[in-house]
Design a protein around this nucleic acid. Structure first.
Length: 276
DNA sequence: GCGACAG
DNA sequence: ATCTTGTCGC
């Protein structure tokens, strides 16, 4: 369906990604990151994009800033955007980053005092294909371009470097992730730890996959992620997801949902009285 | 041909 | 990402 050759696009992206990869800082650079309880950490950001169902170019780009450690929403920005880049596995960043950066810039312009000290990103950071030789994920991309510390938190395991979602992985989950905060390293065939599987709460069996985005170490990233979890998905990302979907629900309701629109007479078969 | 494929 | 209702459990 694409007019422009995707192969050419991906070539450009690979080179851009390799260039940015060199700018990733994989260590703790902030004072709060060194404190046992993250004292002096006051604001944690979360970002996400939600889409309208039949439309893969219209989306709501969401930025939220939560207080820490209370995890209450201090700031919220929903912005409808039109995506231009296709989704190509491994290159999610090129599709989403521009709009997340825009949101951070709007905040910096309007209420700089609310800028987050770290952003939790829906997706991977260094846990990525050929991470050592030039590829990285959305959390790194956004981190490098914004200069803000970022953490990648993926809900699904990206199978990379021999890290696979097989019996071995399932066994590790069952044997090692016994309570909230437990984790185990995601190690490549060559022995490099690219991320960690984390049991984010006592009540969730399925782990989340944490990796370094920018300006934070892996252990700090894991500890921070765990400390931001009320439920399985860290609260900043969860709130960004909830609020961007809510925005779409209100501003772009599915056809046949509004009382004022023609044909709003509900079908008693599909809309039985008493629903909602 | 078959499986994988963050969001 | 999105498609989707109920259902089992505390």
């Amino acid at each position: 369906m694409s007019v422009v050759c995707d192969d050419e696009l991906v070539k450009l992206w690979k080179s851009e990604q390799a260039s940015l990869r060199q700018q990733v800082v994989e260590e703790d650079t902030e004072v709060w990151q060194r404190c046992p309880a993250f004292s002096s950490l006051e604001r944690v950001g979360g970002v996400d994009l939600s889409f309208i169902k039949g439309d893969d170019v219209s989306a709501c780009a969401q930025l939220v800033v939560l207080s820490y450690p209370a995890l209450e929403v201090l700031y919220e920005d929903s912005q409808m955007v039109t995506l231009t880049a296709p989704y190509v596995a491994g290159f999610l960043a090129f599709r989403e980053t521009p709009f997340l950066l825009d949101a951070l810039r709007r905040l910096e312009r309007n209420q700089p005092q609310l800028l987050p000290q770290v952003v939790l990103v829906d997706g991977n950071g260094l846990f990525h294909y050929r991470g050592k030789s030039g590829e990285f994920g959305l959390a790194c991309h956004l981190g490098v371009l914004s200069g803000i510390p970022c953490v990648g938190v993926a809900k699904n395991l990206l199978q990379v470097h021999g890290v696979t979602k097989n019996q071995e992985h399932q066994s590790q989950i069952a044997a090692l992730l016994l309570k909230g905060g437990d984790c185990f390293p995601l190690t490549t065939a060559s022995g490099r730890v690219l991320g960690k599987a984390l049991r984010s709460s006592d009540t969730s069996t399925k782990p989340v996959y944490v990796s370094v985005g920018h300006k934070i170490s892996l252990d700090t990233a894991v500890r921070l992620t765990h400390s931001c979890c009320r439920y399985r998905v860290p609260e900043p990302i969860r709130q960004a997801d909830i609020r961007s979907r809510e925005y779409l629900r209100i501003h772009f309701p599915p056809p046949g949902t509004t009382a004022t629109e023609e044909g709003s007479v509900v079908d008693p078969q599909k809309e039985p009285v008493g629903e909602q």
